[in-house]
Amino acid sequence: MAFMNSSSPHQRQRRTTSQIMVMVILCLIPGVFLQSYFFGIGNLLQITLASVVALGSEALILKLRKRPVLRSLKDGSALLTGLLIAVSIPPLSPWWIVVIGTAFAVIFVKQLYGGLGQNLFNPAMAAYVVLLISFPVQMTSWIPVQSLHPFSLTFMDQLSAFLSGFTLDGYTVAQLSVSIDGLTMATPLDTARNALHSGFTITEMLNSAEFKASSAQAIQWVNVGFLFGGLILLYKRIIQWYIPAAFLAGLVSFSFIAFAYNPDLNISPLFHIFSGATMLGAFFILTDPVTAATTVKGRIFYGLLVALIVVIIRNIGGYPDAVAFAVLLGNMCVPLIDYYTQPKVYGGRA
């Protein structure tokens, strides 16, 4: 009888790319849950729409590129991209924001470069940056945590705001961003930056009514949620520790240097690591294997580099959060980093 021929190794580890993607998606759940707990189910609406758009645009482009559609959709990478965009944008931003962002990420950042594994930039972060620059108002309209809402928002209110920009009672999202005491809401990082720009010290800022009314605590909790998910990824060996560890360590060290130099004008390391997209970035964005460095030394260097850029932009720059910009800048350096951090081959010279 004739037997089948195949090349060695015949035995394989049973973990596929799809499984990795699914695991990453599952590990996002704690963070996403806390986000919707504090900010309402707006983010779930965003996630739903982003998933549909991501899969749809991926399928469309694969069809145009004459690639196997179903097999590529199954790898889950498009879904993950959509998800990451959805959790990055304000929960009640209008629907077209997420549509534009996701379509841009999948079509322009990923597929136009050749699809999975070929893109130079992290699709979610590139899309985030495009949205932030194009629609700054919508992208910075973070509503206060639900407990501080002057109005209680029902599911239908949020759905309506998501779809039409107005709640059922006719309030705009901008109006919703105004908290009880009539102060405009912003993210903690935003508040800090504004305070510093207006000549306050960090201590004054932390004690201000504005800051207390901000969603600082909620965002810290969301970060904890993402940290938890990230630890599961590490435990499951879906990601390796080099990048998150280097990034967080870098963030702490670099911000500490600035903080130690002038604690009045620089936010503390602790504030850094539990604000904004720090944990989401450390475990879910920076570790995107396609756009990160691949060597061990390279990954550590990449994590440190992104951390440095984040600290610089947060402390000095003009944007509220810096992870997206820092990741894109880091992505650009990846080929260079990889080239200069090749490991010593067995029996080779160091």
Binding site: T17, G117, P289, V290
Partner: peptide, 12 residues
Amino acid sequence: APSAEMSCIRCG
């Protein structure tokens, strides 16, 4: 049997 080859995701 070996399953279909997919794109490298540079996981390292």
